[in-house]
Nucleic acid binder design. Structure first.
Length: 586
RNA sequence: GCACUCGUAGCUCAGUUGGAAGAGCAUCGGCCUUCUAAGCCGACGGUCAGAGGUUCGAGUCCUCUCGGGUGUACCA
């Protein structure tokens, strides 16, 4: 969208610099130093082609621009060219397209016609969604929204961990303690019920070999398709999904496909046969592997255990074939922690060796772990567990919501009770979610309640607050000017107003880069910059009444209101893309 | 050992094919009979871990050193 501002200038610059329009448009962009200008052009590379030194070229372009484009300021600052546009020109270029489509600043067509699979969240059933699950869940959710906004056809996949030896134990425990469906259904939290059962039976199995034998026997029955075992497994799975969906509903996340590991359990044979015939398989220490030393990986990819059982990589390959057959994806991303980098490298390499056409379009979107401040040892450490139970995602979210509620009570006690509730939810969750998205995803998240729930500074609530202020102005406009004249972009003459529009114009590029790099933080930063200029703009009205949107001059006020609407829509949409709510009051 | 990853202000972090060192928090000082102060303005704070190299130009690319983190065969 920034091209709407640069396009009129490029021909003159290209001509003066004896360069192509493409070369110029790549270099012409926001200045690295904020506040210096609206657009900047480093002239080093262009100077070579033009046959003069960079400073000289910058000067030449500056004078050329000032003659061809009266009204704009172009100034050489050494080898840099700084361009300052008039507020009216910026307003005219940006506002019209935003009126046609309020979502325009956060839309792109780069993905049109393409399909993306996003594999994210993917918890293990019969266990809680722990706090650390927030990373895959919210990064994946944000990415799915971003791909949608960039035109992609998006498939959200929850690859449930719903298979494994744990279920043999669980069934053995269930039988041993003689439970019925009613016991499970009357439990306050079904996953807690199952989790505690699992802990008890695991302890019993340690002490008593016959318990272990029972667990093994049930594992075997489950694998062999025994109807009672399958029925119980289904009950456990349904119970887990009920609890998961409760949390997913709370955070506003949904999925298109829930095929988990169990779904692929009996579908791996064709792949195994293909691997067999391809001659890629070899036996190493009794395990069946694909050697990857020729692609720089010392460790082979393990396909089958010594006892013939299949492994993680085999299931991922099978699932990937299935997804390609079903969705014909152009890209498939796996939002999984960085600790599993090697695993993805390995099976991606096997896919490549098998000649899969999609092999180069698989991406491991890795992320760092969640660390908490360890007071005793005075260092950052992995999230501690209490008796084997990790810190729960809902516990953290609820605490955050409580804290948000207390702040609302203090700042805005007159809000209706029901609204306080919904605002507290949006703000409390926004604080935690944004804390997870604002930095590069490969960084570890360092979580301190005091920091994450400190709602000052670069936070979700900061964005939400800017949005709420804009909403508030919209609400009050008709009280002041019930019969206002039409908006006129020429009346948006303040620098603050221009800055807001400049930041809006830069968001599309942020969206595109966020998608290209699978990096929601790029958009998060862009939104923070926008919210910052918005806050400066609105706060300037505190001391200077003529700077307010709701000022005396009805025509000016009306024009500013139009900018408020556009900005509010953009901020709201940006928040939605990241997975945050955008309350109209707070 | 090998692989990956990181090292930028006291803390947490940005820094887009190499092109002008930034933000928030914390500290200190200002701004409310408020278009919502969850805000704004300002000050303070840097040998970009270190050393070489490539380049007109390096926080960014290459090599090495130091220091952290993670992974490394039948769990997922």
């Amino acid at each position: 969208m920034q091209d709407l501002l640069t396009a009129p200038l490029i021909a003159t610059i290209a001509e003066t610099a004896k360069a192509t329009a493409e070369q110029v448009s790549k270099l012409l962009g926001p200045p690295t130093k904020a506040g210096m200008a609206d657009l900047a052009l480093p002239c080093f590379a262009l100077a070579k082609g033009a046959g003069c030194n960079p400073a000289e070229l910058a000067g030449n372009i500056a004078s050329a621009l000032e003659t061809t484009h009266p009204g704009i300021q172009a100034q050489a600052a050494g080898p840099f060219l700084n361009i300052t546009l008039t507020p009216a020109a910026v307003a005219q270029a940006i506002i019209t397209p935003c009126l046609e489509n309020p979502q325009r600043p956060l839309r792109s067509q780069l993905g049109d016609g393409k399909t993306i699979c996003v594999d994210f969240s993917s918890p293990n059933i019969a266990k809680h969604l722990a706090f650390h699950h927030i990373r895959s869940t919210m990064i994946g959710n944000a990415l799915a929204h971003l791909y949608d906004a960039a035109g992609w056809n998006t498939v959200r996949i929850n690859f449930l961990g719903d298979w494994g030896t744990a279920f043999g134990r669980l069934i053995a425990g269930w039988k041993r303690e003689n439970y019925s469906l009613n016991d499970l259904n009357s439990a306050e939290d079904k996953v807690t019920f199952l989790n505690e059962l699992y802990v008890r039976i695991s302890q019993a199995a340690k002490a008593d070999e016959t318990v272990m034998d029972e667990a093994r026997a049930w594992s075997k029955k489950l694998e062999d398709g025994d109807s009672e075992a399958r029925e119980l497994w289904q009950i456990f799975k349904d119970a887990s999904l009920t609890e998961f969906n409760r949390v997913y509903d709370l955070v506003g996340v949904h999925f298109d496909s829930w095929k988990g590991e169990a779904y692929y359990e009996d579908k791996m044979q064709p792949l195994l046969d293909e691997l067999e015939h391809s001659g890629l398989l070899s036996v190493s220490d009794d395990a069946t592997v694909v050697d990857l030393s020729d692609v720089g990986l010392k460790k082979p990819c393990l396909i089958k255990r010594a006892d013939g059982g299949t492994l993680y990589a085999t299931r991922d390959l099978t699932a990937c074939d299935d997804r390609f057959a079903e969705f014909n994806f152009d890209r498939s991303v796996y939002v999984v922690d960085l600790g599993q980098s090697l695993h993805f490298k390995e099976w991606y390499a096997v896919a490549k060796k098998l000649g899969r056409s999609y092999a180069d379009n698989l991406r491991h979107v890795g992320f760092g772990i969640v660390l908490m401040w360890d007071e005793e040892n005075e260092k950052w450490a992995r999230v501690a567990t209490r008796n084997g139970v990790p810190m729960l995602l809902t516990d953290v979210l609820n605490e955050s919501i409580e804290r948000a509620r207390a702040i609302i009570e203090e700042k805005n006690p007159d809000l209706p009770e029901a609204e306080k509730e919904s605002v507290a939810k949006a703000v409390g969750m926004g604080a935690v979610v944004f804390n997870d998205l604002k930095n590069g995803r490969t960084n570890d998240v360092k979580f301190k309640f005091e920091d994450a729930l400190n709602m000052q500074g670069e936070t979700g609530p900061y964005l939400q607050f800017a949005h709420a202020r804009l909403c508030s102005i919209e609400r009050k406009f008709t009280d002041l000017h019930s019969d206002a004249p039409a908006a006129n972009t020429a009346l948006l003459t303040r620098t603050e107003e221009k800055d807001v529009l400049l930041h809006i114009s830069r968001l599309q590029a942020a969206l595109e880069r966020a998608v290209d790099e699978d990096e929601p933080s790029v958009l998060a930063s862009g939104l923070l910059s926008l919210a910052s200029t918005v806050s400066s703009w609105l706060t300037a009205g505190n001391t200077d009444r003529s700077a307010r949107v709701l000022c005396e001059d009805a025509a000016v006020s009306s024009s500013r209101l139009q900018l408020v609407r556009i900005t509010r829509a953009t901020l709201g949409e940006g928040l939605r893309l990241l997975g945050l709510g955008a309350p109209e009051r707070m």
